[in-house]
Structures are given as C-alpha cells and as structure tokens.
C-alpha cells in the first residue's frame, strides 16, 4: 500500500490544489480516464465541505487528505476537525424536492454529500463531535501505472 498525505489550511483556494493532486495520483494509480472527472469532483466536494466547516468552527486547524493505492482500489480519505453532528442534522432536513425552500448553507452541505454519494463508487461518511471523515474509493489497476 502506497500513501500520499496532504494537509492544507482551510482556504478555498487550496481546494483546487487538492483536486489536482488527487486526480494526478488517481491517474498514476491506474484509475480509468473516464472516472477521473468523478474523482476530481468528489474530492473537491469533500474538501470544500471541510473548508466551509473549518471556517465556521476552527479556521486555524488544517484539513487532511490521504490518497491510497490499496489492492486494486484508489482510496481517498478527507478528514476535518469541525464538529459535524449539526451538519448531519441539516443534511437530514434537506429536501431535494424543494431546493428553493432551503437555507443556502444547508443546501450546499446537502448537495455536496449528495454529489459525493452519486459519484464515488464506494463512500463512507463518519461524522463525530471531533470532525468528519469521508472515505471514498474507485477501482484502479491492480498494479497501477507507477508507484504512488
């Protein structure tokens, strides 16, 4: 198993960097070209959500992203330090049949998670008072294109 770890300050400008790094490593790991857009978007969504949560609760804490080549899967874990129970409650309240009736923050949080779930092949969301961890993975070539 080869792992790349990246930590970044909770600034919106860094989300693009995280997306680019994740896409580059996914490509090297052997994720199909047709899935790279999905990786880019899902990782971007997870990092955007983390940045927004940190700016609200703990702006000086860094966000961590781990990118792993694991037995034919490309696995990404985005971990933040912002309490996420409140966000989970909002997510449960989100009604996709009435997006115009939603508060903007609720809407974006709900959309973000919905987009990740819709795009990633396999997703687990672990909310807690200490922060949220989003783990997602996609199929990759078993021997990858080159070591990560």
């Amino acid at each position: 198993m080869a792992t790349v770890e990246l930590t970044f300050s909770a600034l919106p400008a860094h989300v693009r960097t995280a997306r680019l790094v994740a896409t580059a490593i996914a490509r090297r790991t052997g994720v199909e070209e047709s899935l790279l857009d999905e990786v880019r978007l899902a990782v971007g969504e997870a990092c955007s959500r983390a940045v927004e949560a940190h700016r609200l609760h703990c702006p000086v804490e860094p966000i961590r992203i781990e990118l792993r080549d694991d037995l034919g899967r490309f696995e990404v874990t985005v971990t933040d330090s912002a309490p996420s129970d409140e966000l989970e409650q909002e997510r449960e309240l989100l009604r996709f049949d009435d997006p115009l009736g939603q508060l903007p923050d609720t809407l974006m949080t709900g959309f973000g998670i919905a987009v990740i779930v819709g795009l990633a092949d396999d997703v687990q969301v672990y909310p807690s008072q200490k922060g949220m961890r989003i783990r997602m993975s996609w199929p990759a070539a078993t021997n990858g294109l080159s070591p990560v």
Partner: peptide, 14 residues
C-alpha cells in the same frame, strides 16, 4: 468544472 457551491449560487440566483 462545477461543484455544489456553484449549484448553491445558481439556486440563490433563481
């Protein structure tokens, strides 16, 4: 590229 933040802006505009 468009993410959920962009969707939120479009919904807000609507």
């Amino acid at each position: 590229f468009l993410d959920s933040t962009g969707l939120g802006v479009l919904v807000g505009g609507l």
